[in-house]
Design a protein around this nucleic acid. Structure first.
Lengths: 206, 206
DNA sequence: ATAAAACTTGACCTTATGGTAAGTTTATTT
DNA sequence: AAATAAACTTACCATAAGGTCAAGTTTTAT
């Protein structure tokens, strides 16, 4: 009956290590994060961490994968049926919410890209290309149908990505500028409103 | 007469080291970049690099300072006299041009912020807060005068920053998605046009 | 109860890296 | 030409970090 005990411990250890690793990788970068510092943060001996993950690179890969999955799930979707207004509203809200609720995931991903995506597998890149192509096509349809202003769909996607992720990646800068210590509940709503409003107007939808 | 020779060598060495260091810091992060790798890239012996800079942290500080100066100079300005339309056009163009011409500077800065601005001096942060306050006030005047749509000025600044810097920080991702190896001359113009167009419309100025 | 598997851990090894010390060469000044 | 200062270089050291090992302990299966 108690075969569960092992599984739970195993799962919990993985979880603790991944959480600690995400923290450290964001704070110190790939090379700067040490197995020891990850172990300390996870409250496990170093050798134990290396029992669960063969080496540091494997830890990093696991963190990256976790991050990509989150990106995939949380990103909502852009479907032709919704029409441009609703689709943009949904998408912006999803991205802003993700940025505020899980800034670390966004940061890991951002650092990886900035540094040249050295650890990112090819499939992940191809996948994104596909995604953008597909969504751009939907926007183009709407434009051709006169449902929205004629704007370059690919650059529009970039603008939405960048302006939403900014609140995660640059949270430190934003908080410093606003002279605050932390984000508050209302911020998500405020930023979502600002961005949807602004972007819809940019698309000629207001 | 030939006292110049030393000065030139000195200047050139500094330049080579800083360029190499910027490269390495972007590619490998602070901890990942080694004095040796910087020296190799600068084609100098390691000890010679450490003759010009006491230690790695000093190299990094120099790179960071260089980056901040560039940000300061290249950022153009937002002045009340220009009015919202011209001011935004100028500012967006300046930022986009910087992003395309000097992506590494933007990346160094982005990485520093993402990682919590651990090396950034307080004065740099306070300075930015001041800058944003000041410019936000100008936008607010324009709004109050009915010269532009009522949008939150601070978030507008964030949107302009993020959407323009994106082309520097995420150049790898963008190029992958567009299935290209490098940016081309026309890209600056195209992106500038897209962004000014979109943002002006977002501000109710089109 | 016993064996086997899964898990935990301290001690250890090797390598890479930041940095130093001390000497040598090269350019500038007098 | 000699003296001085700047620039360069070699050899070296201490430390920290990734990773292994082998000896334990605990849980599960028989």
């Amino acid at each position: 009956m108690q075969k569960k005990q092992r599984q739970t411990i195993r799962a919990k250890s993985f979880e603790k290590i991944l959480a600690a690793a995400q923290d450290e990788f964001v704070l110190q970068g790939y090379k700067g994060a040490t197995v020891q510092s990850i172990a300390d943060k996870a409250k496990l001996p170093k050798a134990n961490v290396l029992y669960y993950f063969k080496n540091k690179e494997n830890i990093y890969h696991a963190v990256l994968e976790q991050t990509l999955n989150m990106w995939d799930e949380g990103i909502g979707d852009i479907t032709p049926e919704d029409g441009p207004k609703l689709a943009i509203e949904k998408f912006v809200r999803a991205k802003v919410t993700m940025s505020f609720k899980n800034p670390k995931a966004s940061k890991i991903y951002a650092m990886e890209i900035i540094q040249g995506a050295q650890h990112l597998k090819d499939f992940a890149r191809t996948y994104q290309r596909q995604w953008v192509r597909e969504k751009a096509k939907i926007f183009q349809c709407w434009i051709d149908n006169g449902e929205m202003q004629c704007v370059d769909p690919v650059n529009l996607i970039f603008l939405i990505w960048s302006s939403t992720q900014h609140y995660a990646d640059f949270d430190n800068q934003i908080l410093t500028i606003m002279n605050r210590a932390d984000y508050e509940e209302g911020d998500i709503e405020h930023v979502t409103h600002f961005l949807t409003d602004f972007i819809l107007r940019g698309c000629g939808l207001k």
